[in-house]
């Protein structure tokens, strides 16, 4: 089996678990915080056999929005951390000021080893993109608050942008740009 496939499989497990756990946690938080009564129904039609439901649309909207927000944030925080960490790591090679800044901020451990690969960022960003698309689609359908959809959209854009930047950084390692070498 190829090393890349094995690594992809290994890296994909964590965001998949975080995605489901985030949604579940959001539902639990909403139910506990607002003391809501939820119901579970067995469906014969459709692809899902079990369906969570509420008796009024306002409660459904609230629970769905909170759970979507928790899920998006649960994926966005690690993704942005990986992106920022990698950007800082790459920046230290080019700019000595970065080293001074991170020494002042006492985050030297972020640049002591390159343990975040492009693959990790790409997979986490993909999961962030999926959750954001779900939230945006539900916002358009009217089953999620607008501001949750907007936050999800903005985070997805950051995720994509960060992934592209990391990709460029990785490419520069293999094929360094001439102006960087001879300035």
């Amino acid at each position: 089996m190829s090393k890349l496939l094995r690594r992809t499989l290994k890296v994909s497990i964590a965001p998949a678990v975080v995605m489901i756990a985030g949604k579940l946690l959001g539902i639990i938080i909403a139910n506990v915080a607002y003391n809501l009564d939820f119901f579970i129904d067995n469906q014969i039609q459709g692809i899902f056999s079990i369906q969570l439901y509420y008796t009024d649309s306002t409660t459904t909207l609230l629970v769905n929005s909170i759970s979507n927000l928790v899920m998006v944030l649960a994926l966005a925080i690690p993704t942005l951390y990986f992106i920022i960490k990698t950007s800082i790591y790459q920046s230290t090679f080019e700019n000595p000021r970065t080293i001074v800044k991170i020494t002042k901020l006492n985050i030297m451990n972020w640049i002591t080893k390159d343990d975040t690969s492009f693959l990790t960022i790409f997979i986490w960003s993909s999961f962030l993109l999926i959750t954001s698309l779900i939230s945006i689609a539900q916002t358009i359908q009217g089953t999620c608050y607008d501001w949750v959809g907007i936050i999800a959209g903005v985070l997805a854009i950051f995720g994509i942008w960060g992934t592209i930047k990391t990709f460029e950084g990785e490419i520069d390692k293999i094929y360094p740009r001439e102006e960087k070498l001879y300035r």
């Binding site: 998949a16 995605m19 489901i20 949604k23 369906q51 439901y53 759970s67 779900i134």
Partner: peptide, 12 residues
């Protein structure tokens, strides 16, 4: 996870 999240989304 995508299908699970869609299934976990509550309905009225």
């Amino acid at each position: 996870p995508t299908l699970t999240v869609l299934n976990l989304s509550p309905i009225t």
